[in-house]
Design a protein around this nucleic acid. Structure first.
Lengths: 146, 146
DNA sequence: TTCCCTGCAAACATTTTGCAGCACT
DNA sequence: AGTGCTGCAAAATGTTTGCAGGGAA
């Protein structure tokens, strides 16, 4: 997804296109993994000294309501990332280091034969965590990124 | 797991057995699903009027460090429940209404053939959410439980 | 010009910490 | 009696809300 598309979508909904929102869009487009509200703030405040946390939260919520970003609960809190472009059902490999996510289409639900008596499945969660190639090889790439 | 076992385990570690801790143990033993710290507090304060939130948090952490309860991140926050007794690898059906969890032993990892180039899997998450028999049939059981 | 967006301040919710007194062992 | 547990108070975090001014359309 391109910055332009995001901006266009916001504009189409009658929202104002501010410098902050452009920067926020770029931030997500450029970042493959998840971002915490705090990380977003810290990235933005470098460009906009006066940046406030509430604007970050407000805009994250806006982007989420527009289905541009999605929220995910990690063990250490809420994080956001660009929603997957595809509508196809899929799951993710998630790098524990850089949090980059890589989609795959195998779904285990096809193989679950037995449900508890009377259990009615509604949704499921299947994610595989590990280390991506970059974070394994580039020993200190992670350190550098921090 | 029985209240007695939990108490015994705490006692063995040299911890004091207080009335609150007995009640807390009973609470988890009697409750099949997950509990938020707030729910724990609200249940406990009925018995101990002076009960404070910090005691709840402290004891939850103690029980967690002893591997008696486990923590789980839901979309609406952290919740706790008794750790599964079995050591066998397994996953869970989780009721969206009462949050009761039912273990099953099928594991999709055996069927994932391809990993992204260089990806090194470490752990995974597979949970199936839905409605258990009780919460489907007893139409208002849920409402009553609230 | 209009009205949305922003920063500020403050409120709110959740979780943690220091301390003194009380209770378990 | 000794020490760990508890409640209280306060602080640290994370998130939300009301308001007035500034900026996008």
């Amino acid at each position: 997804m391109e910055v332009q598309e995001i901006i266009q979508a916001m504009s189409n909904k009658g929202m104002r296109i501010t410098e902050q929102r452009k920067t926020l869009a770029r931030l997500f487009v450029d970042h493959e993994g998840y971002l915490t509200p705090k990380e977003v703030y810290e990235a933005m405040v470098q460009t906009y000294a006066g940046m406030s946390f509430d604007t970050v939260y407000r805009n994250l919520r806006v982007l989420q309501e527009m289905d541009i970003v999605e929220q995910f609960m990690f063990e250490d809190g809420i994080k956001f990332r660009l929603r997957c472009h595809t509508d196809e059902h899929h799951h993710h490999f998630i790098c524990l280091e850089c949090e980059r996510t890589i989609p795959f289409h195998y779904c285990p639900m096809d193989h679950v034969q037995q449900y508890p008596e009377g259990f009615k499945p509604v949704k499921h969660k299947f994610d595989i965590y590990g280390y991506c190639e970059t974070c394994q090889s580039g020993q200190s790439r992670q350190a550098a990124a921090r």
